[in-house]
Design a binder for these strands. Structure first.
Length: 471
RNA sequence: GGCGGCGUAGCCAAGUGGUUAAGGCGGAGGUCUGCAAAACCUCUACUCACCGGUUCGACUCCGGUCGCCGCCUCCA
């Protein structure tokens, strides 16, 4: 079995991902904070983690994935209060939207998607453990983690945290801390609404941000698990803090492997509301792009490199993906004809493409190289088909190979279920009539009209086909 | 200031210390076609930001320069 090699932020090296004896690979993904609709930058990360889990399964490794839903934080409390509602009601719509987008992007649903608000007792218990072990202190009722008690702090980010001093830039928590690097585990009840407060042995209040991921990941995956994933911006301080509070609480290694996905830029700029370049999935769909194209776009580049989203790039994806779809359809047609056993050259082409594909993904999820293997198979398959070497059995072999590859990318299979409108059908029929009469001028008029409606005509020996493109 | 990353053809984007530097998009020519579309064939980086060094040999290793970016503060 090919073993996945994955870059580990902890060591800065590419290392084997090895499951514990008799266990699936246990992975945790820092999920969305549900205060607004997630944007394509968020989904760059989430699609990358989906490619990770699908690659593991492709390689025959069982996966247990937890992705949290952060439904309590200052923004949520603030926005919910402003709307005169509470957390449960306010986060309902963004959460639903997130799950919709997940489905649109054909992401596999993680085995567990815990909500922070439903795991406060677990967080409280972890804080109690930290208190018992002397890693905390209390100021005005709020509980802080004392970084000085964890000498290994900073190991993930390789930041020289001793340089962070109390001062203008750091202290966003309103309470006094012993050290600017310390972070809050529990915020004492203040003026927030009652629906944003929970009871704890150390006082009524609400959890800090970092504690939820430690509590929930350990609850479902165990105190030590295999891979912890998230956006590159979470390395510091979020993941650093998770390590500190988890390892100090348990005395054990927290996550063995840390995978971080680099950012998505829009036209070479960071996304920001002021620039008006923050797009979400419905925005792209509204522009006429399909979900398979969006998924291909988000998964085509290497996850450890910044990805630059451009409209032109998305348009390029349309063509590149169409090439795969067209090939697939061509194979399906061939399958329908009778035939002998598959030709050796076809079997060989499929096998060697699959081998390249697997090798690329196993090497730190090299998606661009894996896609090159897919396109290579398309070229080779088309050439063989042009020469008449691909019979029904051969087409079946090639489709099987593509299906295998699509277990990871989930966008190669051509979209189905589309049909022509009555008006388009009429134009299509009239063109067919005109062609029969060899009235090509009239036929071309109909074709042009269809084209303006986003329908492209293809005449083939087996009849006339159509396909939809962005108008 | 500290830490980290990037700079490969018109565009996007892999890769390796040593035969012809993947793949996609775009472009040129050709085959096929009533014409197209699709597909196929040929061509499209004598070169990998720049300058040095190590080496028999570097685009790949080291040092420096320039440019771009991220993090160090909430953030996928």
């Amino acid at each position: 079995m090919t073993r996945l090699k994955l870059h580990n932020t902890l060591s800065g090296k590419i290392e084997d991902v090895v499951p514990s004896e008799g266990q699936p690979i246990r992975m945790y993904v820092c999920g969305p904070t549900v205060y607004s609709r997630a944007h394509i930058g968020n989904f760059r990360t989430f699609v990358a983690t989906d490619v990770l889990r699908r690659t593991l399964k492709f390689l025959g490794v069982p996966v247990l994935e937890v992705m949290n839903i952060t439904d309590v934080d200052d923004r949520i409390i603030q926005l919910a209060s402003a709307k005169g509602t509470d957390i449960r009601e306010f986060t309902e719509a963004p959460t639903k939207a997130y799950l919709e987008d997940l489905a649109t992007l054909r992401m596999e649903v993680p085995e567990v998607m815990p909500k922070a608000t439903e795991h406060v007792p677990e967080m409280v218990a972890l804080i109690e453990r930290l208190m018992a072990r002397g890693h905390t202190y209390t100021v005005d009722g709020s509980v802080y983690f004392r970084i000085a008690s964890f000498p290994a702090y900073g190991g993930l980010s390789r930041l020289d945290v001793s340089g962070i001093k109390t001062g203008v830039r750091v202290d966003t928590d309103k309470y006094e801390k012993e050290d600017a690097r310390d972070f809050v585990l529990w915020k004492l009840k203040g003026d927030e609404p009652s629906w944003a407060q929970w009871d704890a042995s150390f006082g009524r209040g609400r959890p800090g941000w970092h504690i939820e991921c430690s509590a929930m990941s350990m609850k479902y995956l165990g105190e030590t698990f295999d891979i912890h994933c998230g956006g590159i911006d979470l390395i510091f301080p979020h993941h650093e803090n998770e390590i500190a509070q988890s390892e100090c609480g348990t005395g054990k290694l927290f996550a063995k492997h840390w995978m971080h996905v680099d950012h998505l830029l829009v036209e070479n700029e960071t996304m920001s509301k002021s620039k008006g370049n923050v797009y979400n999935i419905p925005d792209l769909l509204a522009k006429g792009f399909r979900s398979d194209q969006i998924r291909y776009m988000l998964s085509q580049s290497h996850y450890r490199k910044a990805f630059n989203f451009t409209w032109d790039g998305l348009a390029q994806v349309e063509t590149a993906l169409a090439r795969i779809h067209t090939f697939w359809n061509r194979l399906v047609e061939i399958t329908e004809s009778a035939g002998a056993p598959a030709h050796d050259s076809v079997v060989l082409a499929a096998a060697s493409a699959l081998a390249s594909f697997e090798g690329a993904l196993a090497n730190d999820l090299n998606a661009p190289e894996a896609l090159a293997a897919v396109h290579g198979l398309v070229s080779e398959g088309n050439t063989l088909a042009d020469r008449g070497v691909v019979n029904a059995a051969g087409a079946g072999v090639l489709i099987d190979a593509l299906k295998r590859m699509d277990q990871v990318f989930a966008c190669f299979e051509p979209p189905k279920g589309d049909s022509l409108s009555a008006e388009e059908q009429a134009l299509f029929d009239s063109r067919q009539d005109a062609r029969k009469k060899r009235d090509f001028a009239a036929a071309d008029v109909a074709r042009k009209a269809l084209q303006e409606r986003g329908v492209v005509i293809e005449d083939t020996p087996k009849g006339t086909r159509w396909k939809r493109v962005r108008a």
